[in-house]
């Protein structure tokens, strides 16, 4: 009994009805590890669409890419890329602020990130409306909408997670302790993933 008590941190003498506290057998906490594994799974989902992209472009090998009448707005999408990439810095600023217990900085960072993300999504929808081809137009159109749409869905999910963090920040949650701002850090990791993934999608779809 005594030896087990030491391992437990001395809780054994109290009458407790809840579960015993789990032993933490790794330095990484559950939420962070969870989001990293989720991101692995997300990367593979993008992988499925990139595989399709490879087949439609390299294996089918149409004479021109993009096919003749179609054009991609590389410059506008480039500006959009810059917007999304800058949001990675604002979310990082939010996280660093709460680490130093700067609540104003946290709120500012989160709101800015949210606005930048929403702007990205807005510009992308605008691009869809004006681009002049649809997902039905050849394999090219399908995979263009497939990849950018999949990414857009991820931005949307990311914005949803950021909204949660923002609401909580304005309601006075989060603190400088490592375990008290996981609600900012974990959506932040996801947001960085969404950013990096966009750079890959942009490079593959628009530039190459």
């Amino acid at each position: 009994m005594e030896s087990a008590t030491v391992a437990m941190g001395g809780h054994a003498h109290e009458e407790h009805h809840g579960p015993p506290e789990a032993h933490q057998s790794s330095r990484i906490d559950r939420q962070t590890l969870g989001i990293f594994l989720f991101i692995v799974s997300e990367i593979m989902l993008f992988g499925a669409f990139f595989a399709s992209y490879f087949f439609l472009r390299v294996v089918v090998d149409p004479p021109t890419w993009p096919p003749e009448p179609f054009e991609l707005p590389v410059a506008i999408a480039g500006v959009n890329t810059a917007i999304l990439v800058s949001s990675s810095f604002t979310i990082h600023y939010a996280l660093e602020s709460i680490r130093r217990n700067n609540r104003t900085g946290l709120k500012l960072g989160l709101v800015l990130t949210w606005l930048l993300g929403a702007t990205f999504l807005f510009i992308q929808i605008n691009e869809y409306v004006n681009i002049g081809f649809s997902a039905r137009d050849l394999g090219f159109g399908s995979i263009f909408y497939g990849l950018t749409g999949l990414h857009g869905a991820h931005v949307f999910i990311g914005l949803l997670l950021l909204s949660f963090a923002t609401i909580r920040a304005f309601r006075g949650h989060f603190g400088p302790e490592e375990k008290d701002h996981l609600g900012v850090e974990v959506p932040g990791i996801y947001w960085h993933f969404v950013d990096v993934m966009w750079i890959i999608v942009y490079t593959a779809v628009y530039i190459l």
């Binding site: 399709s52 087949f55 439609l56 089918v60 149409p62 394999g139």
Partner: peptide
């Protein structure tokens, strides 16, 4: 449902790519 051409040969799609994925 959406009428995309991922696996439609006539629309520049790749049929075999389904099996690979």
């Amino acid at each position: 449902v959406l009428g995309t051409q991922f696996f439609q040969f006539a629309g520049g799609g790749d049929v075999i790519s389904y099996q690979h994925i």
